[in-house]
């Protein structure tokens, strides 16, 4: 039920942010489309933890500023590699082990790795991730430990990454 309410609130906020018209006719049309969308989502059986992941919203909002800082730091090094006159890169493939338990936490961790320029998650098998990095010295498995623990703490809760 909480997931359903989260979906309704998110859809209503999205509709109000897109529309900007407040006459009764348009508002009722928006309500009808919201109801149809909810019925479709119920029939598709996607109203679960992955379909409306708002339970850990606070943890994720606390995680995002740290991720933004990491993105800025990684951006600078990749931009330097792009505009440097002579090409000087050392790509590497590394295997990273994650402590994340749930699928959502793994997705968050893998997406954080991919969102950071210079590292791309190539494959996920169980709890091992295959990561391609632009610089060999920057993409050792130890470099991802903090991101791993922070994303596990943000999604799985406090006790997951002790």
């Amino acid at each position: 039920m909480a997931y359903f309410l989260g979906l309704v609130v998110a859809l209503a906020a999205f509709w109000l942010g897109m529309s900007g018209h407040n006459t009764p006719l348009i508002l009722s049309l928006g309500g009808i489309s919201l109801i149809i969308t909810c019925i479709l989502a119920y029939r598709l059986d996607i109203i679960d933890r992955e379909g409306s992941p708002y339970v850990r919203l606070v943890g994720f909002l606390l995680y995002f500023p740290w991720l933004a800082k990491e993105i800025v730091k990684a951006n600078i090094s990749v931009i330097r590699a792009c505009v440097k006159a002579d090409l000087d890169i050392a790509p590497a493939l590394v295997k990273v082990k994650t402590v994340c338990k749930s699928d959502l936490a793994k997705v968050t961790f893998a997406n954080s790795i991919t969102l950071t320029p210079g590292t791309v998650t190539v494959e996920i098998e169980g709890d091992k991730l295959l990561v391609h990095g632009l610089y060999e010295q920057d993409s050792q498995p130890e470099a991802f430990v903090e991101m791993d623990q922070r994303s596990a703490r943000a999604i799985d809760g406090k006790g997951a990454a002790a």
């Binding site: 993105i71 990749v78 931009i79 991919t114 320029p117 791309v120």
Partner: peptide, 14 residues
């Protein structure tokens, strides 16, 4: 292709 992905992610993020 893999290194080009890194360069394309500059466009996508920052």
């Amino acid at each position: 292709i893999y290194t080009r992905l890194h360069a394309a992610s500059i466009t996508d993020t920052s």
